[in-house]
Each structure stands twice: as structure tokens, then as C-alpha cells.
Design a protein around this nucleic acid. Structure first.
Lengths: 335, 335
DNA sequence: CCCGTTTATGACAACGATGTCTTAAATCGC
DNA sequence: GCGATTTAAGACATCGTTGTCATAAACGGG
């Protein structure tokens, strides 16, 4: 098998210097149309693909960006990767997907190492890495461009894309109130995620506005996973006066609630309304399908990558709209 | 902020030549212990991370491998990525996750471009890219090491890791037969995936052995997704003599079957047994939880990457065990 | 038609590692 | 204790691009 074609092969075939090929490759000015055409033909003929290694070594760009995540919802990170990937594809840039562990004391060092090793041009942080102070400090110190997806803290500090978690949780709670519910259980998300607090806050805000007193026993901690949702549901339904609706901070936990309801022969939504958050595929794969908040995850990721590539200077924010998706799991109180 | 430390900075600090630093980095022979210690101290002090770009340009290794996938089950690819990532981490190698489109006529060229651009040391193919002849030809032609995860065709041709889909489907079907089922519906997987055929074959093999005649109307095509599973279930349950059990080729489709059963007020498993395949998280997030086949996805991926790094020459195969996981969605016929 | 500016191209160093070759020092056999 | 071998370390070219600088050709204004 022939070795890979280099810029030199192209320059020979086209009868120009390697620098000219480089100019065509980078769409620089000062190349005659005729020359450009000749070079492009030669590149096509040789199936030339420039070496990223050489480009990053010699130039200021590496044509690579990294996504750093520590999120255990496969649906969520799949959509994030998908959105970033789509943007990268348009830009002709490669994406490095990098799992991480926010709990690790070496996290910042690992991120630093990643940057040194790969020379990535920019970084995208997804929750909860968005709120790890050491990581933010490391990135700031290096002056590398980065964008956060749905950050929970220090909003003003860096560029980010996000949705309004507070408003969304408020919307959902209001939806339930409008259906006559007064005792509404709430399952909090994973403590690492700032979104958890915000959703809780939205829930309380809606209750306040409706003049419904906040009752601590109706609020239970969760971990954003099925099992913790189920466990919380057991506790809520064991209350002397159980809720008529349960709002879980994400779909996985809502699925857990549904399972418990089924097991106890509680009909959803007649005897109990259940609401989720995220609108992952899971929401429509359970029975009854979940009323939930459509989080524009893929678009958030797509925009985040877009911000990274855009020339806009300074700190930029982009807010995307969420949407209340009403399905079969919620209904009027009492059926 | 200081620019990144280079091998030269390390060599200066340690008072040795850059070549010696390189030797320490690559754990080569012929470095005195005292020297090695000195160099390592210098590397640590400078937080030195070698440039991958420079290493791949100068050396024969790039310390990167690529995963190529075209699988739309988030659960599945998440586990695959996770397994490969774990192995890469142990080996100090980076993973490039590359979505692809098996239908695209330019797929082979894209894979070729990826290799040229990134100089990856090896490639892991996951289903259904495992069975794209142009891609295999391209990789063969270049002589780049690669491993396939669960390939469907030409098993002998390349290294691979896999499970026995035929036997697994046979096991599940036998499980249903043992519970008294005689009319067992089957929903085929996505036609792009060879595993679909194999699971169908296992289903038929079990029926044959039990002396149950094969009935074509009980077998419906699907696409490995929720909607197609639901659609197939509608057709099966509309039959004049509907099945008492439905075996879907994956969990997503089985979830679709469950939803239809709920909608029609058919109790699972009393009036209808439902079985899935894969044991993704979805299987335990629906009600009732699915009886399914645990596919060792993460381990398959981990082993695949392991094979890539191993020195074993030639074509190597590794088979991993599946497991029948019995949960609440299947039971004796007639309840 | 000449000079200054813009356009177009090339020569060559540089990026940060590894590969190859050379050489010096330590070790070994007898 | 001497030559042969092994061990240890360095000098320097090299990988395939881009950045910088030099320079030639085309253009434009009076």
C-alpha cells in the first residue's frame, strides 16, 4: 500500500510550491483561480488529507476541540456529542470526547495535560464539569477558549449556552397546579449538578405564586437515576397523606416513579400524575409516556461548539428555549 | 501564562540531552537509574505533557485510536465508548469517537481520510460498520490494525470480539417455550445489522428443536427502535390468533411492545409475555422490567481495545458470555 | 511610462518530538 | 590488564505542515 500523500506530492503534481498548496488548503488570499483549481485537482487525484499532527505542530490551530463530561445519562451525553459533532463536521474539526470525574483531585491537572498533549483549539464543558472551580481556573490561566453548556455558577464569568431551568420547573409545576394538584411531590436531582437546585427553586416559585405552602416532607433527594427515583417515590407514597402528583427532576427518576406506581397498582395519571424533565427518548418509551420538559440538548451542544468557532470576542451567552411537552402521565387531580 | 513545557525544557532542567528525556518517556533501555530519576523529577516539576502531534509526526505511533460507529442506540454506544475508554486510559492512549453513516457512498474515503489526518494507530469498528465491505477493504489495503465488535460476516477474516447471538436468541426462545408458550411472536432487528439475522435464526432453531412449526405471520420486521417495536406489536396483536409471547430483538422494541400492551389493557406477563435483548438500562426502567439477554457490551469494547494493543499477531477472536436475565415481563402462558 | 502598491508565489526556518548514528564509559572474558 | 562487548548518552536529521520573509509580476495613478 502506498504511503499517505503529503503536501509535497501535491505540490509536485500541481507544479507549485508546497507553500501554495498550504495556501489553498487554508483558503488564504493571494492565490490565482487557475492555480487554486490546479492544486485542488491534484489534491483530489492523490486523495490528499493533511496531517493534523503536522498542522498543529507548525501552525496555531490543531483543528481539534475537546468535550469534557462527567454525566452518567447516556441519552444526555449522546445528544451532546451529537450536537457538537454536527457543528465540528461543518467546521472541518475533530472532536475529542473526554470522560472525566468531577470528584477527582487531579481533574484540573488532567485537563491541563489534555490541552498540552493535544493542543486542542478549544474546550466544551458539560455539566457538572461546568462548575468545577479548579477546572475553570486552569482554563482561565491558560487563556484557552471554552464554552460551558448549562453552567450553574458564575454565569457572567464565561461564555455559555443554557436554558432556563428555573422557569422550566416553574412551568411544569404550574401545569400540575392548573390541573388541580395541591400536594405535589418533588424529587431533587443529583447534588453535583447545579441544575438540581434551580429546578427545585422553580418548583418552589410556582408554589409560592399559587399560594400553596411549601411542605418539606414532599421533597426528596435523588441522584438522577432510575433507582433513586423509585426509592423517593416509595417514601412519598408511604406518607400518611401522599401527593397527587410527583414531579421528578429528570426522566430517569420519573421512570422510577412510574415503576413504583405500577407495582402498587396506582393508576397513572388517574390516581397519580407523574412528570419528568429532559424529554430523553426514555420519556416516550415508558407507559404512560411522560409529560416532561423538552430540553434542547442537542441544540445547546451545537450552539456551544458554534460559539467556540465564532469570532465573537469576549463573553457570549446564548439562551435556548425549553418546551413543556404534555403526554399521558399527567392529568386532572382525582382522574 | 507560561507556554507549555517541552522536552527541551525538561532536558535543560535535568541537565541531559533531549534524547535522554525521550528515552525516559518511552521507557527505553540504556538509561541509568539515577538519570531516570532526575529526568522524572524534572518532568514532574514542569508538569510536562509530551505533544502528541510531535510524537506522531516523528515516531511510528500516534497514541490515538479511533472508534467508528453508526449505531443509534445511545445506551449501546455509551457502553462501547465507556469500555474502550477504560482500556485506552490504562494504555495511555486517546480515543477518537467517530460517528459514521454506513449508507454513505463516501464512507470508505472518510475512514481513509481519518487515518491520514490523525495517524491513528488502530481502529475499532462497531456494528454495523463492521460489515461494510468497502471499509474493510480500505483498512486491509492500508494494513492498519483493527478489531471488530460483533461482526456479522467473514468472521475468520479479521480479529474480533463477539457474543453468540444465535445461542442467546435460542436461549430466550427456549425460556419462553419452557413457560408453555407455543405462539411466540418475533420482531426482527434493523436490516443493516447482521445480528438481526442471527437472532432470528436462534429463534427458529429453538422452535425447531421443540417441534413447533415456524409461522411467518408471527415474525415482523423492525428497526431496533421504540416506534417500530410498537408498530410490529400492533400487527401481532391484531392477528386472529395473537401470540401469547413476543420476543423483540432488542430492548427498545420490547419497550414499544409493552407500551402497546398497556394501551390495550393487556396485562404483562399474565396475558402476554414480552422479552427483549441487550439488557440496556431501559430494560429495568420500564414496567414490568424486561426479561432480556445481558449482552456484555462494555466488556466487548474493553476487550476489543485490548486486542488492538496486544502484541498477539494474526487474527484473534474472543468470545464473551451472554446471560439470560429473567425479570417480570415473562411468565407462564395464561398467567 | 515610471514608481509605488497590491497580488501572487517561493525559499527556508520552525514546531517538538523520535530515529539513526556516533561516541564515551563501564563491564567482561581470559 | 587489554581488547571486545555491552551500556549509556548525545548530535543531528527528520516527520509534514505553517509562519516569516523575500521577491517577482501585475496594476494604478499622474
Amino acid at each position: 500500500m502506498a504511503s499517505r500523500a503529503t503536501i509535497k506530492d501535491v505540490s509536485n503534481l500541481a507544479g507549485v510550491s508546497i507553500k501554495t498548496v498550504s495556501r489553498v488548503l487554508n483558503k488564504e488570499k493571494y492565490v490565482r483561480d487557475a492555480t487554486r483549481t490546479k492544486v485542488e485537482a491534484a489534491m483530489a487525484a492523490l486523495k490528499f488529507s493533511p496531517s493534523l499532527a503536522a498542522r498543529s505542530l507548525a501552525g496555531r490551530r490543531s483543528f481539534q476541540i475537546a468535550l469534557i463530561y462527567d454525566n452518567h445519562s447516556p441519552f444526555y451525553i449522546h445528544q451532546i456529542q451529537d450536537g457538537i459533532w454536527a457543528q465540528c463536521r461543518e467546521q472541518g474539526v475533530r472532536m475529542l470526547a473526554q470522560p472525566a470525574d468531577v470528584g477527582s483531585p487531579t481533574l484540573a491537572a488532567e485537563v491541563g495535560g489534555l490541552i498540552d498533549e493535544t493542543h486542542v483549539d478549544g474546550i466544551i464543558l458539560s455539566s457538572p464539569v461546568t462548575d468545577a472551580p479548579e477546572v475553570l481556573a486552569e482554563l482561565e490561566a491558560r487563556g484557552i477558549p471554552f464554552v460551558r453548556i448549562s453552567p450553574g455558577t458564575n454565569h457572567a464569568m464565561t461564555s455559555s449556552v443554557f436554558m432556563d431551568d428555573v422557569q422550566a420547573a416553574d412551568d411544569m409545576t404550574t401545569h400540575l397546579i392548573n390541573h388541580g394538584h395541591r400536594r405535589i411531590g418533588f424529587i431533587i436531582g443529583h447534588p453535583n449538578h447545579m441544575a438540581s437546585d434551580q429546578r427545585l427553586f422553580g418548583y418552589r416559585r410556582a408554589l409560592d405564586r399559587a399560594g400553596i405552602g411549601f411542605e418539606p416532607s414532599l421533597v426528596r433527594p435523588g441522584q438522577f437515576d432510575f433507582a433513586s427515583g423509585a426509592a423517593a417515590a416509595e417514601l412519598l407514597l408511604d406518607l400518611p397523606e401522599p401527593p397527587t402528583a410527583i414531579f421528578a427532576s429528570n426522566d430517569d427518576m420519573a421512570a422510577g416513579v412510574l415503576a413504583v406506581a405500577h407495582r402498587r397498582d396506582i393508576t397513572v395519571p388517574d390516581a397519580l400524575s407523574v412528570a419528568g424533565f429532559d424529554d430523553t427518548e426514555l420519556a416516550s418509551a415508558v407507559w404512560p409516556p411522560l409529560t416532561t420538559i423538552r430540553q434542547p440538548t442537542r441544540d445547546l451542544a451545537y450552539s456551544a461548539a458554534g460559539l467556540l468557532f465564532s469570532e465573537e470576542a469576549g463573553v457570549v451567552h446564548r439562551r435556548l428555549q425549553h418546551e413543556l411537552v404534555v403526554r399521558g402521565s399527567t392529568g386532572r387531580v382525582g382522574g
